Simulated scan of single mutants.
Amino acid sequence: MIKILFSPSEGKNSGGKEAKNELFGAQNARDEILQEYNKIVQSGDEESIKELFGFKKMSDCEPYIEDIFSSDLMCAIERYSGVAYDYLDISSLDKAQREYLKQNTIIFSNLYGPILGGDAIANYKVKQGSSIGEIALDKFYRDRFSYQLDLYLNSCEILDLRAGYYDKFYKINKPYTTLKFLKDGKSVSHWAKAYRGLVLRELAKNNISSMEEFMTLEIETLQVKEIKVIKNKREIVYNIV
């Protein structure tokens, strides 16, 4: 089976009615992070809260100031908003397609670390690159989850659609595939998010279960230019047409 590694988003959808479920990996591995996050959020220390959330105004922080352990929960793949998730447009997919995303997408959350698309999470806020208290998130999750991810992905094919920043959370130790998008011969950066979301949508719509199937998939506006192999990474380069 194919597993897709994906980035989170700064934007979130509020609310949620999901029941609490066991998150990916060892259940106590992220407790320290969640407790430290909650302590800051509940502290009343406006400067610490604004720094954690990445806001300049306390009024912008208010929607996120709640006990994360009793917050409303929503599946991760539905919680996130932003460019990639706008192009994924999960609300327009049918039940089987949404289930595909919940089972086969691994999202690298800035708070929760690696989680499955179907894992139920709170509406949180952590600025990308921030630490939580004295805890550096990338190192924390790399140390605690790399072995578990190696085991989980051992018999799977991997399509890595993460933004480069999230390579710090987990280094893939087996053959995998990434995508690069070119417009007029130049690599796109911000809009790469949109095309990653578009590709993830097509994977779900077509119930893609292997890289062999993916390689035959025709995606509107994308045309394969070349395929590069460097060590254990295969990079498919697309022209945006």
Rank of each mutant, 00 (worst) to 15 (best):
residue 193 K to T: 03
residue 184 D to V: 06
residue 66 E to H: 14
residue 32 E to Y: 00
residue 71 S to L: 00
residue 165 Y to I: 13
residue 29 A to G: 03
residue 17 K to F: 01
residue 138 D to A: 14
residue 210 S to K: 07
residue 181 F to Y: 14
residue 124 Y to W: 12
residue 26 A to D: 14
residue 228 K to F: 00
residue 48 S to H: 01
residue 34 L to R: 07
residue 147 Y to S: 13
residue 4 I to C: 14
residue 71 S to R: 04
residue 98 R to C: 09
residue 2 I to A: 09
residue 99 E to C: 11
residue 170 Y to L: 01
residue 167 D to M: 05
residue 36 E to K: 15
residue 236 I to N: 10
residue 19 A to S: 14
residue 43 S to C: 05
residue 110 N to S: 13
residue 92 S to D: 09
residue 149 L to A: 05
residue 147 Y to A: 15
residue 87 Y to N: 14
residue 127 K to V: 11
residue 15 G to I: 11
residue 35 Q to F: 01
residue 57 K to F: 03
residue 211 M to I: 11
residue 213 E to W: 06
residue 69 F to P: 07
residue 38 N to A: 06
residue 161 L to E: 04
residue 185 G to C: 11
residue 195 Y to L: 08
residue 146 S to C: 07
residue 183 K to D: 03
residue 53 F to N: 08
residue 50 K to F: 00
residue 170 Y to A: 06
residue 209 S to Y: 05
residue 193 K to E: 02
residue 161 L to V: 04
residue 213 E to K: 15
residue 95 K to M: 02
residue 14 S to K: 15
residue 8 P to R: 13
residue 216 T to M: 04
residue 106 I to A: 10
residue 22 E to K: 12
residue 120 A to C: 15
residue 101 L to K: 12
residue 210 S to C: 06
residue 86 D to P: 01
residue 225 K to H: 09
residue 3 K to H: 10
residue 153 L to N: 08
residue 206 N to G: 13
residue 229 V to K: 15
residue 10 E to P: 12
residue 147 Y to E: 14
residue 56 K to F: 01
residue 87 Y to L: 12
residue 20 K to Q: 12
residue 13 N to C: 10
residue 126 V to E: 05
residue 103 Q to H: 13
residue 164 G to R: 15
residue 73 L to T: 01
residue 35 Q to A: 04
residue 51 E to H: 13
residue 143 D to L: 06
residue 237 V to N: 10
residue 172 I to Q: 04
residue 22 E to Y: 04
residue 91 S to M: 02
residue 102 K to W: 02
residue 226 E to R: 15
residue 86 D to F: 00
residue 43 S to V: 05
residue 27 Q to G: 05
residue 173 N to P: 05
residue 14 S to N: 14
residue 117 G to T: 13
residue 231 K to H: 11
residue 226 E to Q: 15
residue 200 L to V: 02
residue 146 S to F: 02
residue 71 S to K: 07
residue 146 S to E: 06
residue 71 S to G: 04
residue 109 S to D: 08
residue 76 A to C: 08
residue 175 P to R: 08
residue 8 P to N: 11
residue 49 I to T: 04
residue 128 Q to L: 12
residue 96 A to G: 04
residue 191 W to N: 13
residue 223 Q to L: 10
residue 112 Y to Q: 07
residue 28 N to E: 12
residue 210 S to M: 07
residue 228 K to D: 07
residue 32 E to W: 00
residue 145 F to S: 10
residue 172 I to N: 08
